[in-house]
């Protein structure tokens, strides 16, 4: 049985809830009071993850941390279609490249959100600038992707964990004072992610309506 150590307002925890919802995986939740309780720095939590970061996922006796690593684990173990984390070496590299971008989005967009909404002492302006720099590159990548008939961050014709990993803190960027007005292709991609069957929401992330059917 899978247990997720979860904070409801965490985009990194939401990545796992989102993939498990898409894969239709049952799991239990242990709520961790990240804010204001800082339980992720409590002794009992540090024994699970010495890095003191959410999320942590337990699958029977296996204890895993880092949202990107856990996304890869869940996909490889439970996604029978093999689409979410493809085996092909080149595509694996592509997906991991975007997992790294997702971490950059966390350290910028999420940091600005934590500074504005959760009393974190991060440099707001620097975090916002950093997020805009990444969003510009993502928008360009996705814009040229649309021109070439590619809907997702990676080259396959279907979404991968790269899309799941990058999605939450793009969508939550307004909470960090980062407008997405200048990134129309990025905004269209968020529509597509929100239309993946099995998509689920979190606070601050709204559903998209259905696509047009003829």
């Amino acid at each position: 049985m899978i247990t997720l150590y979860d904070f409801e307002l965490s985009g990194n925890c939401y990545k796992l809830r989102l993939l498990m919802s898409i894969l239709n995986l049952p799991y239990d939740i242990v709520p961790v009071d990240f804010f204001p309780g800082r339980q992720h720095k409590a002794d009992w939590f540090l024994r699970l993850n010495p890095f003191g970061q959410l999320p942590v996922l337990k699958d029977d006796d296996l204890v895993l941390s880092d949202s990107g690593a856990i996304l890869a684990y869940l996909a490889k173990k439970y996604d029978t279609s093999g689409l979410w984390f493809p085996d092909d070496p080149a595509i694996t590299a592509e997906v991991l490249r975007w997992h790294a971008v997702a971490d950059d989005i966390t350290s910028t967009s999420s940091a600005a959100r934590l500074a504005l909404g959760y009393d974190y002492n991060f440099n707001i302006e620097k975090s916002q600038r950093g997020a805009h720099r990444i969003f510009r590159l993502m928008d360009e990548h996705l814009w040229f992707g649309e021109k070439a008939g590619r809907d997702w961050l990676c080259s396959p014709a279907h979404p991968t964990t790269a899309d799941i990993a990058c999605f939450p803190y793009v969508m939550l960027s307004e909470e960090g004072g980062i407008s997405r007005q200048d990134y129309p292709a990025l905004r269209r991609w968020t529509d597509r992610v929100r239309r993946i069957p099995g998509f689920t929401v979190m606070s601050g992330i709204f559903p998209a309506g259905p696509a047009k059917v003829d």
Binding site: Q181, P184, R187, R188, D191, P210, K212
Partner: peptide, 28 residues
């Protein structure tokens, strides 16, 4: 204020002109 291709069906584009924010959308 936008390219035609910025407005696929069932999308709402966020734009701005002379300080005024705009919601731009193409109907079916």
């Amino acid at each position: 204020i936008a390219s035609s291709e910025d407005l696929p069906f069932r999308h709402v584009y966020q734009g701005q002109l002379l300080g005024r924010e705009l919601a731009v959308w193409r109907a079916d």
